[in-house]
Nucleic acid binder design. Sequence first.
DNA 1: TGACAAACGGAGTGATCACTCCGTATCTTC
DNA 2: GAAGATACGGAGTGATCACTCCGTTTGTCA
Lengths: 175, 175
Amino acid sequence: MDRPLRADARRNRDRVLAAADAVFTAKGLAASTEEIAREAGVGVGTVFRHFPTKEALLEAVFLARVRILASKVDSLTTEGAGPAFFAFFAYAVESGDMYADVLAAGRTGETQVGQELADALSGLLARAQQAGAVRGDIGLPDLMALLSGAVHAASHANPASRTRLLTVINDGLRP
Amino acid sequence: MDRPLRADARRNRDRVLAAADAVFTAKGLAASTEEIAREAGVGVGTVFRHFPTKEALLEAVFLARVRILASKVDSLTTEGAGPAFFAFFAYAVESGDMYADVLAAGRTGETQVGQELADALSGLLARAQQAGAVRGDIGLPDLMALLSGAVHAASHANPASRTRLLTVINDGLRP
DNA sequence: TGACAAACGGAGTGATCACTCCGTATCTTC
DNA sequence: GAAGATACGGAGTGATCACTCCGTTTGTCA
């Protein structure tokens, strides 16, 4: 069914996605589609051809980001369950504001972003709890809320403050 | 200088403020001024006469909310420093989404909202640390970030999850 | 290289929003 | 209760935004 994209179309799609990521990060989610098109070096028509609504574009950007998070989780499986868990938390908190909106969006309901986030975190949490590194009385939704809150708290904070916030939450998460 | 407001003007100002609080809570901060005017039972002209910009209206709403928080702090001074601190935290977290935006706004910069929030929290934190109920390695900005993050995490969460989140953060805040 | 499908650019469209302006209504004061 | 100051309502204004449409360009493939 799906015919392969023409080379220029594929290239432009990627450019739009990268530009949207950059512009949403720099100017916030209210940034206009025209600005994203300008940053990508294409016309607005091209943006809407690849992503039928602004919401679809935003979801594509979020999905890309959540997949970076998921790959981070995967890259940590060689470590023990406890260290992997806390290393992941630290990574998310220290990644600037990049994940604040994604995590907030992924927490509510049945979006693909939420689904993939839940998939990535459920194993991480279960193994860390199994290993006795994380308290057993919290569930996956609690972790997602906590992660979202922690990243929210850390955004716009200086690195030293970020580290302190992380310490507080880590201490609270231990059994 | 300031002549007293006419009786109907005072009444309308209060109605607008209450309507803005309700509408912002129900529909989010992007709710239109016209909707607020309708809810208040006045014309849009009246809204803008009392609050020259939408931002000014939002700040007035936030200021009213932060003052509720501050009065909550004051009402807790009869308790010990530690219990007062944790009771305040619990109150903020359990107050639904009411404070999520206010706390996020109050954390950045030199607004009056931020100033009054800082004033309310600094004594609470200092006394709780003095009493040995809260770890000494965090400062006022850390607390403000943490409070904002906790309320953010708790918003849209069910009561049971809210309680668990609060437990995690409380445990992390102890020495 | 020619022909056709696929993709492009960007002016145009309709909707929404914050904010203004002024004729009308209401409150205050004597 | 009359006069004057104060406040009101809401149609109007200009700006912005998401999204569409179509004449033009570009890539693909025989």
